[in-house]
């Protein structure tokens, strides 16, 4: 386990695994898109617009998945103080924000023909908007604190505060607006959605998750390199200082 957590080993392992993961993500997403447009039927109520669901729902799932990844990494930062956990946290925040943004925009584009407006203050949309704001706050925190170790701990604390708060926000927003349709994929007593629509959705969700894993691993690699660059440039600057010392003293 410790071996996998060593950053140098992690760089080598991901370099070997990433091409395969990209291949898998590409194949799954290709199959999913084919099923979305060729296999899945148009909804009898919503017509063709139901095809937006095949990206909207996976994006919503990833917006929560990214937060889960950040939470686990935040625990890694606070409990084990592991540099890889710091890198994973920092890499996940912009990706989470990106997929949450996709979820919001596709939801809006789906809502316009269905509800007649670009935005309704519906409970689920509003909760996702608050989640988006939390992501933006985390990114702002990462960008403001320069020292990476401090930034990682501050972001970890804020992420964990968010974990406690997100269910409360969800509950309060639901309470605030009880007029919305019940969630239909993960309903008690099995999915209510027809299999011809469920399969494309599951394939798209798997493909999107693979895409997220690829992007996340690549971003973690970048963060490892950035921390290495930071340390090496300090060392180089120190070495340069030592090299300059004798002439300065001789001149004085």
């Amino acid at each position: 386990m410790l071996k996998y957590a060593n950053p140098t080993y992690f760089l080598r392992l991901t370099a070997a695994v990433l091409p395969w993961l990209w291949g898998a993500a590409g194949l799954t997403l290709g199959l999913g898109l084919y099923m979305t447009f060729a296999v899945a039927p148009a909804d009898y109520q919503q017509g063709e617009t139901v095809r937006i669901m095949y990206i909207h729902v996976p994006a919503a799932w990833l917006s929560m998945f990214a937060y889960t990844v950040m939470t686990l990494s935040a625990l890694g930062t606070l409990v084990w103080r592991h540099p890889l956990a710091d890198a994973s946290q920092q890499a996940a925040a912009p990706l989470g924000a990106g997929f949450t943004f996709i979820c919001l925009v596709t939801g809006s584009l789906w809502g316009k023909p269905m509800w007649g407006t670009w935005w309704v203050w519906d409970a689920r949309l509003t909760s996702v908007l608050v989640l988006f704001l939390i992501y933006l706050g985390l990114i702002a925190l990462w960008n403001t604190i320069e020292e990476p170790l401090k930034a990682a701990r501050a972001a970890a604390i804020l992420t964990l505060v968010g974990v406690v708060n997100i269910p409360i926000i969800k509950f309060s927003v639901d309470w605030w607006n009880t007029l919305h349709q019940p969630a239909s994929v993960l309903r008690m007593g099995g999915p209510a959605i027809h299999p011809t629509m469920l399969w494309p959705l599951l394939v798209m969700a798997l493909g999107a998750s693979l895409l997220f894993v690829c992007l996340h691993l690549m971003a973690i690699r970048n963060e490892i390199l950035r921390r290495r660059l930071r340390r090496l440039s300090y060392l180089a600057a120190e070495a340069a200082d030592h090299g300059l010392e004798p002439p300065v003293e001789a001149g004085a």
Binding site: V130, L133, I134, L136, A140, L141, T144, I169
Partner: peptide
Amino acid sequence: LMAILVLPFTVPVLIF
């Protein structure tokens, strides 16, 4: 920055 970090978490308090 503090306002950006804190305001999303005050949503439940405001609602209730």
